[in-house]
Design a protein around this nucleic acid. Structure first.
Lengths: 352, 352
DNA sequence: TTGTAGGCGTTATCAG
DNA sequence: CTGATAACGCCTACAA
């Protein structure tokens, strides 16, 4: 009676244990090392052997034991990604990270940041898997806590979205100022002069966007008018801003919102009050998130390409893995303006 | 000159390598085994030692090597979760899985399913980490491919959302028929009689919801009227349905949509055409996703509690881990109706 | 409490 | 190409 693990002819009958390289080797009558070489595309195995090994692996349902590999190599070929599932634009970035990482020979390990799970917790868990580098997307952490996180980490850290230049980590962010400038210039070209900016102080990248608004308005000799809203920059924030505007009785001809969600909330609340967009009021957003493209919403918005951001994050991470102590770098993604149906010339003739 | 790894007094000066249990032991002058016991809360270490070990671990920035632990134990204390970041309701389920898993002593490993990454790929990757069980959320896979996936897996599989009773895996789903029934009964109680259902054939759970609509209408002696839309049940699908309704010139007094996104698209498109909701037309959704709760949207909807679903998924997984060959079970979550502002009595007197 | 011994699956280095 | 040997970090078993 064969003991467990002993190679006998029909080893398929006891599939309670995951197959190992040893099982493949036994089935083919070759050595474990050769199987390892063949599966890794390392030199030292003939093409024919390689094919036979692959076939046997597939038949047995072999899956490499990633933990064992990591243990042996002291660092896994994985990039750790901390993200917040609930945030609107992050899924797109996450999706683009997968193919980019694969092209560089890396896998992806996700760790969610939720209301009950801090960025630090999510980060440390990835550390436990010995990821080769960490990518942290849009965490709401302060610059100080981010730096602390990065300093405690033995592997390179890339921060996406929260844009503070820093000696401890690389940064990937969009040029928020340039994006808002594009929106303002588009509105000015349409004939608008009374353009309000919707600012939400609680969101770190918003600061840069407001700066862009100020600069663009000043350049055209127009007065800056800013509504500062509280909250988390979601649809609710936009709706609150709409109520404030309506109460003030003095509607502008255009509103530049700091992100798409706020813009949507604004539009919905205005529609409720009978204010047509873009008939009575033009609105722009920021992000080009999924909702913006809906024909029912059709939001003119500054697009920060999530694919480009994901790829930049991976590039930064891999660069730092390869040569550890490079000076930290900032990857700035230039937004483009996507013109849709929420902007139009102001109703009356443009006021002088 | 000390060799690498040898315990000398100030080992903090060479922190290029992650600290191990051996490092903690060396620093404290105790054995590695004791450190292991202390960190795992296993019996055999005094409270005082335990505290000292913990402190030293924290000071060194020790993180257990999850791969090594998994290797030693032949199966990790992790639940693998396959999910699609882009889908609206899934993030909430994912978020609730974390605390539920932790209560059972399990960690969570996420794997994203994206346009360029199939459910099978995402699943296999988790397999590589030797997860103790797999939870697959709302994959669009056919019943056959799901069964195939589960059969090939050596560990228990729980499918969330795609509700086919099956010998190969556990299922967690909401009672879609009961949810739609609640919506219909709410509308009937308000005085509606002309109630249309918005059906999207491409979404698996929609079938059950339509069944609930049919049954509820029949019970009240009302004629069933169904608009079948193509597409993926997003806002765009709802908008298309609105255009169809408007073209037909014969508006019902109420629409029951198969999910919130379709309901929102419908409402937005109707608003564009000047049809007030709920003034002229009542609308209900399904899911109670984030958009439904916005004051600007304020959608009456059947809520399938994502927390409950996440917890049920974890419960199912852990149950099957503990006793492998239980008969597969179906966990059905009963929806509740959340009444908001998108429903009201029909404008005229209810027709006899 | 400590020490010793072994093994999980993989990769790496050698000598044949 | 094989075979032998070792190591990664952690856990378990057993004896001191």
């Amino acid at each position: 009676m064969p003991r467990r693990g002993e190679a006998d002819e029909n080893s398929e009958v006891t599939p309670k244990r995951d197959p190992t390289m040893g099982d493949i080797a036994a089935r083919l009558g070759v050595s474990r090392q050769l199987v390892s070489l063949a599966l890794r595309d390392a030199p030292g195995a003939s093409d024919e052997t390689r094919a036979r090994v692959r076939q046997a692996a597939a038949e047995l349902g072999y899956r490499p034991h990633i933990g064992a590999r990591t243990l042996r190599q002291s660092s896994s070929r994985y990039l750790g990604v901390v993200f917040a599932p609930a945030h609107a634009t992050e899924p797109d970035i996450v999706e683009s990270i997968y193919p980019a990482a694969e092209r560089c020979g890396y896998g992806v390990l996700l760790s969610a940041q939720t209301p009950s799970r801090s960025t630090e917790q999510a980060f440390d868990e990835l550390h436990g898997h010995r990821c080769a580098a960490m990518i942290v997307i849009g965490s709401g952490l302060s610059a100080g806590r981010l730096a602390e996180l990065a300093r405690r980490s033995l592997v390179p850290v890339v921060i996406v979205g929260a844009g503070v230049r820093n000696p401890d980590f690389d940064v990937v962010r969009s040029a928020g100022d340039a994006g808002v400038r594009l929106a303002v210039e588009h509105l000015v070209a349409l004939g608008h002069r009374d353009i309000i900016y919707l600012h939400c102080a609680s969101m770190a990248p918003a600061e840069l966007r407001r700066k862009g608004y100020r600069a663009a308005m000043a350049e055209h000799g127009l007065p800056a008018r800013i509504i500062r809203i509280t909250g988390d920059y979601t649809e609710e924030s936009g709706a609150a801003a709409a109520r404030e505007l309506l109460a003030a009785q003095q509607l502008p001809t255009a509103v530049v919102a700091g992100n798409d969600q706020a813009a949507l909330g604004l539009i919905l609340e205005l529609a409720r009050a009978g204010v047509a967009v873009p008939g009575r009021l033009s609105v722009t957003g920021f992000d080009d998130s999924r909702i913006a493209a809906l024909t029912s919403v059709s939001l003119t918005t500054a697009r920060q390409d999530p694919i480009e951001m994901g790829e930049a994050a991976v590039e930064a991470a891999v660069r730092r893995i390869r040569s550890g102590s490079l000076p930290p770098r900032e990857f700035v993604i230039t937004p483009t303006l996507v013109v849709r149906g929420s902007t139009a010339p102001p109703r009356g003739p443009a006021q002088g």
